[in-house]
Design a protein around this nucleic acid. Sequence first.
DNA 1: CTAAATAGACAAGCAGATTGACGAGTTATA
DNA 2: TATAACTCGTCAATCTGCTTGTCTATTTAG
Lengths: 146, 146
Amino acid sequence: MDDPLTFSALVLALSGQLVQEIHTSVSQQGFEDLRPAHGFAFARISAGGATTADLAEHLGVTKQAAAQMVEELVRKGYVERHPHPHDARARLLGLTETGWAATRAADQAARTAVAPWREALGQARFSELVADLTLLAPPGPIRPAW
Amino acid sequence: MDDPLTFSALVLALSGQLVQEIHTSVSQQGFEDLRPAHGFAFARISAGGATTADLAEHLGVTKQAAAQMVEELVRKGYVERHPHPHDARARLLGLTETGWAATRAADQAARTAVAPWREALGQARFSELVADLTLLAPPGPIRPAW
DNA sequence: CTAAATAGACAAGCAGATTGACGAGTTATA
DNA sequence: TATAACTCGTCAATCTGCTTGTCTATTTAG
């Protein structure tokens, strides 16, 4: 049972479960107005220096779509727009304290979701697994895929 | 770098790349009117005995949404509706020859996408990786997650 | 100094999903 | 066995997230 199809199915199943568990946990921690895709936006914005166009690039959507998401996140109190120091056209995006709290909640959720797997494999084998995946994963930003 | 967050990011990145590569390859093999989500439908229908309601359950959407997808796949020539032998309300779904061809194309695409990873790790380590993932992956159907 | 490119906003439209209501057929129960 | 409750599939309306297209203000390149 180590053929490519099985492997594909496993990776897909694992990532689906991961997204689902993180989303559920974040909701239960009081952030019910966030969807999984928002996590990818938070990842880019928290890294700093992002404009709406940067965010669009990171998410793999049009800048109009990114602008709509930013507008939504601003309205919900997770994101702020600041003037850009060197470009009068652009606005720098940043997380509010609520935005940071949601990010921490997602981090915690990821830990909770992964913990049983780590335990099931044992620390040594888990580390080896992470090393293998590191070899395989593409560089660059993580984006929603379908 | 073997913390849960890193692991989550790796699994997400890997599955995103996988979906993208399979979709691109299937399109290039002439099935340009199929989207990634259709693959999950084909998986259930090819297993046999599926009604529209079964498909909805499998995909995690409402039966109306599943019915719309079935209608689309019938119109495009991938799926057929047959009378159900024991229930006059229901229709049994099945793949047409074109549907089976698309399924084989997706299988082939998965193999092509995974092959370089298998090569990068080596056969033994790859088998071990699959064994580890098998331990972690949940049982049951694979669904689009977000 | 002018031409091309870029950031973001406004508008309209589309695709894929949702909720709600319904008739036809099936299953469970009194 | 009568009938109440449930299920399958459909029709209709609506919502949401994204797209394409257009525009102004500003920056960058030649």
